[in-house]
């Protein structure tokens, strides 16, 4: 019976059995967690200040002490930011900009990813004549600074009658997302074993069947990455928004700028903070939701072939 009792707590290597014991508190862990905690405070502090400020009334803000939680809690700044603050000429709050941003972002993301994924697929698996030249030109496009191309694009859009139209802005976002997205998809499809593609051709699948039934499902994690990249980039875009749209179509970022930089009257810090938080809400949600999907996507796609 004696040899069935639990072994002494201090076991030597020779008696090792079962999972290796881990010490929770080692010097290494303390240092790592310490640094991590410090960094999170560093990044979270501004957000803390923003949230607290947005929940205070102006008199309380003018008293200073930006870190303190509100004495008198109020949601008035949020409501004002959403529906009645002046964004330039009109005073309907940032809600119109929110709608505009959705109308700009959704089609741009869908269109650019749809085109780029087919591009990448054709470039990596079908290797048509001139594919490499085409790809090289596309990649060079990625290195030309935006500013250089803005004026020509304004002219092009004016000529085809899309200047100042939301469709024009969608087109610009789609085109500018193309090089990097095509590169991502091409490299992803390159890692697909060629024999899989051959097998599908023998099974009589054509260009679109192979893409839709076999390659696109395998590239699901890549699609998630592309959605994160594109939707945050387009949502956060300011430059194209201000150039290629008219005031009634301004995306949220442009309206936010107008609110924060307005020179008339008192600066309503609480409303500014609320508006800023509101416009950051969408990218934040995308990160949180798709981050989870992303990890799951990688796990599901791990067994290729």
């Amino acid at each position: 019976m004696a040899d069935q009792t639990a072994p002494a707590p201090s076991r030597g290597i020779a008696e090792a059995v079962g999972p290796r014991p881990r010490r929770a508190l080692s010097v290494r862990n303390i240092v790592i967690y310490g640094i991590l905690a410090l960094l999170s405070v560093y990044y979270l502090l501004p957000i803390w200040v923003m949230i607290m400020t947005s929940l205070k009334g102006m008199p309380e803000i003018q008293m200073g002490n930006i870190f303190a939680p509100p004495v008198e809690l109020t949601f008035e700044p949020w409501i004002r930011a959403w529906s009645s603050v002046c964004t330039g000429l009109t005073c309907e709050g940032i809600s119109t900009g929110f709608l505009n941003s959705v109308i700009i972002t959704v089609p741009s993301v869908v269109l650019s990813i749809a085109v780029a994924s087919v591009n990448g697929y054709a470039l990596s698996l079908w290797r048509f004549r001139g594919a490499n030249v085409f790809f090289t030109i596309l990649i060079i496009g990625a290195f030309i600074p935006y500013q250089v191309m803005i004026y020509p694009i304004v002219i092009i859009l004016r000529e085809i009658g899309l200047y100042g139209d939301l469709a024009g802005l969608v087109l610009v976002h789609t085109v500018f997302g193309m090089p990097i997205l095509t590169l991502l998809f091409r490299n992803d499809f390159y890692s697909v074993p060629e024999e899989l593609f051959m097998a599908a051709r023998i099974d009589g699948a054509g260009f679109w069947t192979i893409f839709l039934k076999i390659m696109a499902p395998m590239a699901l994690p890549m699609f998630v990455v592309a959605v994160i990249l594109q939707s945050t980039a387009i949502w956060n875009d300011f430059l194209f928004g201000v150039i290629f749209s008219t005031p009634q179509n301004y995306p949220m970022t442009v309206q936010l700028n107008n609110i924060v930089n307005s020179v008339q009257g008192v600066r309503e810090y609480n409303v500014n903070m609320a508006a800023t938080l509101l416009s950051g809400l969408v990218p934040l949600t995308i990160y949180l939701v798709s981050g989870k999907l992303f990890v799951r996507g990688i796990a599901a796609g791990a067994v290729k072939g």
Partner: peptide, 11 residues
């Protein structure tokens, strides 16, 4: 045709 790497459609 049958391939060395099986080439089955994974999904």
């Amino acid at each position: 045709m049958v391939f060395q790497s099986y080439a089955l459609y994974p999904q």
